[in-house]
């Protein structure tokens, strides 16, 4: 058994060869992936580094060097002292505005999308196809096109520049994507499940809440991530519909960064930007595993 290369062990030989080849492609893959990761993380790194520096240090122009001392004052200022126009309350105001917009918008849009998708996939009703087509169209129309009529409608309904107004806007704009996401998920569920529940005496909502929703954990998490990042990162809708008192964090960030008076405080701007990007990042890190699982389960079968 000393001569492993003898023709008496052709399988051992070829297996080793295959392993070596697989190993080679692995290395190439890792090289590519780590290269991409570095490329994408450089801007983030510069932002974080800069946010810890003091202004004199920044003016030296050594953007890649580490900060001389860990200076947190830029973060503090970004959070609670930076000026947006006349008010100087920092980003914290915008953060809480964003939370007030985000939570009801996400919950309502997911609930509405799930109900819609469930109705479209599992209850054959007259015109179901037309509704679906209309929703698809809705998903593809660039929303800049309908902004002006929407503003008119909302001011007529006294919803313009109010918190409920911006929430309704987010729910409506989230509906096409959420509906299609859930419709595709529920379309893979056997129709006999609903039939069995109907024979058992359960109605439309009972079947939804007691049978369908508990089966939907994975797709709910996908929807949660999509809606949280989408609504948190929204700028245009918040700027137009939220009104001055409810401006979300993104709008405030823009106001801080483009504040024309005095010198540009790069460290404060960088800290403010990182702060604004943090919540969606946190959602990804906390539930990324489920995200992948949910996407995959749509492709294979619930």
């Amino acid at each position: 058994m000393t001569d492993n290369n003898s023709p008496a062990f052709p399988f051992a030989f070829s297996a080793a060869q295959a392993r070596r080849r697989r190993c080679g492609s692995r290395i190439a893959l890792y090289l590519f992936l780590s290269g991409a990761a570095v490329l994408f993380s450089i801007p983030l790194l510069i932002m974080v580094l800069t946010s810890f520096k003091s202004m004199p240090e920044i003016r030296q122009g050594t953007i890649f060097s580490l900060p001389a001392a860990l200076d947190l004052s830029a973060w503090v200022k970004a959070w609670s002292g930076a000026c947006t126009g006349l008010a100087c309350g920092g980003l914290s105001v915008g953060f809480w505005n964003s939370v007030r917009i985000l939570v009801p918008s996400v919950v309502l849009s997911i609930l509405a999308g799930a109900l819609n998708g469930y109705a479209l996939a599992l209850w054959r009703f007259r015109g179901a196809h037309a509704v679906l087509t209309a929703l698809m169209l809705g998903a593809f129309i660039p929303y800049q096109v309908i902004l002006y009529p929407l503003v008119k409608i909302f001011s007529f309904l006294h919803l313009y520049s109010t918190l409920p107004g911006i929430i309704v806007i987010h729910v409506v704009f989230g509906l096409p994507l959420m509906t299609m996401l859930f419709r595709n998920f529920y379309a893979a569920i056997p129709a006999e499940l609903v039939k069995a529940a109907r024979v058992d005496g359960a109605g439309f909502f009972r079947i939804f809440f007691e049978i369908m929703l508990p089966m939907s954990t994975n797709i709910l998490i996908v929807a949660l991530i999509l809606q949280t990042t989408g609504i948190w990162n929204d700028y245009l809708l918040g700027l137009i519909f939220a009104g001055h008192d409810n401006q979300p964090m993104t709008v405030q960030l823009n106001n801080i960064v483009t504040n024309g008076t005095g010198i540009v405080e790069y460290n404060v701007n960088m800290a403010a930007t990182v702060l604004t990007a943090l919540p969606p990042l946190a959602v990804y890190f906390l539930s990324g595993r489920y995200f992948v699982r949910g996407i995959a389960s749509g492709a294979v079968k619930g």
Binding site: L193, A196, E210, I211
Partner: peptide
Amino acid sequence: FQSYALYP
């Protein structure tokens, strides 16, 4: 039902 259709 032909396919059981149990509530999973």
